[in-house]
Nucleic acid binder design. Structure first.
Lengths: 224, 224
DNA sequence: ATGATAATCGAACACCTGTTCGGTGTCAAG
DNA sequence: CTTGACACCGAACAGGTGTTCGATTATCAT
């Protein structure tokens, strides 16, 4: 008769090991040794680490180069080296609010994510709680953003003039990407494309800034 | 009196070691051991490998975690793991031709380059001779591409309908980014933004396809 | 030639590291 | 109670691996 797993999937110990490997790899640029894993995870015997490692390998979470030193690595596309893994929280669609997960609700394995080389990111944004949205519909085309594009945002509540922000206009029931300007009697939401006219918002209208765009990525492979 | 270095900078052996480390790291996801380096570079003694490693460390090319196994790593922003380093060949400016370096003229250290995570690239394009251009001027704005954007291209001579391509119109003396369509009496160059009208090119007019756009990247940090 | 410096080698050494194996304790099923 | 699966420990072992050192050969200015 099969035993029922105490907790679905991995145990607490497994996660610690997994986290440690990722952390160590990022810091040292090379994998940890079995003993280093043990120390960090309060496992006093190398054989127990090996025990866990074998399980994690069986469950497909890691790969091992047997017999050779430090031959552990996480499976799949690991944000090795100098890249940021940015979770894709959803789609940005006119007519629907963006759901920004509360603070650090970071799923262990986000449904989807994008990896961006550190070298591409503006220095200031590194390590922030960046998140990404996939643009659906052509409602944002006046901001030089098209269907299918991925926009990377930094969560902010306030914006300075000239910044491209994701804005939720609750009374119009609309989310949009625009350049943001404060003016005497309200806000001006300026499309990036000069052929479009700006949207003027009176101070009385509610306006909620969701995030500031720091990067836009368009993959042009759907026209193959 | 100082000795004059035979060849400027690094010797042939040094480069082989450097290349091997990068290659090995990419393949195995962990650094090589001293003996593995030796084998691959026709160095029969571990002490000689150590000798070279010390020099490379002194010259700043690598870092070493002394005493620990496989503690070598390349310095600086190494295209570690799963990223592609794509050279930026120049700027794309309307009114000037793009210079595409002949075949595999790949400088050891391109003036500039962008690192893109493999996971972001369309599977087909991986490992191709991709190159990147920085867009200058707003001449391409009708293709949803703006000043400062980086477009990543695959070099092609011919395009299929619907592909976004970089085109050189020699009689108009103009380079442009457009969606490409063959039609009965010529070509139609369709801007991505539907609010702009297509450019129609007769078969008599010369048209030279430089490359096909596979990705567009926009860093939005200059508005800080 | 000659002495100095660089490039190599090979072997010995000591620690690093993964593997293996015999035990201990717990807990639930038989 | 016994059994067996599970999680865990500690020690011992066999290679893996970086380090060190004495010795040899090449190169080159003097």
């Amino acid at each position: 008769m099969m035993m029922v797993r105490k907790s679905k999937g991995l145990g607490e110990r497994h996660k610690r090991v997994l986290d440690f490997i990722e952390d160590y790899q990022r810091k040292h640029k090379h994998p940890p040794s079995i003993r280093e894993i043990g120390e960090s995870c309060d496992i006093s015997s190398t054989s127990v680490v090996n025990y866990y490692l074998n399980q994690l390998e069986k469950s497909g979470h890691i790969e091992r180069d047997r017999k050779i030193s430090r031959g552990v690595r996480l499976t799949g596309s690991t944000p090795l080296g100098d890249m940021l893994r940015i979770p894709i929280y959803g789609r940005i669609v006119a007519g629907e609010p963006i759901l920004i997960p509360s603070s650090d609700f970071r799923a262990f394995t986000p449904d989807e994510s994008v990896d961006i080389a550190m070298s591409l990111m503006p220095a200031k944004e590194k390590g922030k709680d960046l998140f990404a949205l996939e643009v659906q519909g052509e409602s944002m085309i006046d901001a030089l953003v098209n269907e299918g594009d991925i926009v990377i945002l930094k969560p902010v509540q306030d914006a300075r003039n000239g910044e491209m922000v994701a804005i939720w206009l609750s009374d119009r029931n609309e989310t949009t990407l625009k350049y943001f300007y404060k003016e005497k009697d309200g806000y001006r939401l300026q499309p990036a494309n000069p052929n479009f006219k700006p949207i003027l918002i009176r101070k009385t209208e509610p306006l909620e800034i969701k995030g500031k765009v720091v990067m836009v990525i368009r993959k042009v492979d759907r026209y193959m």
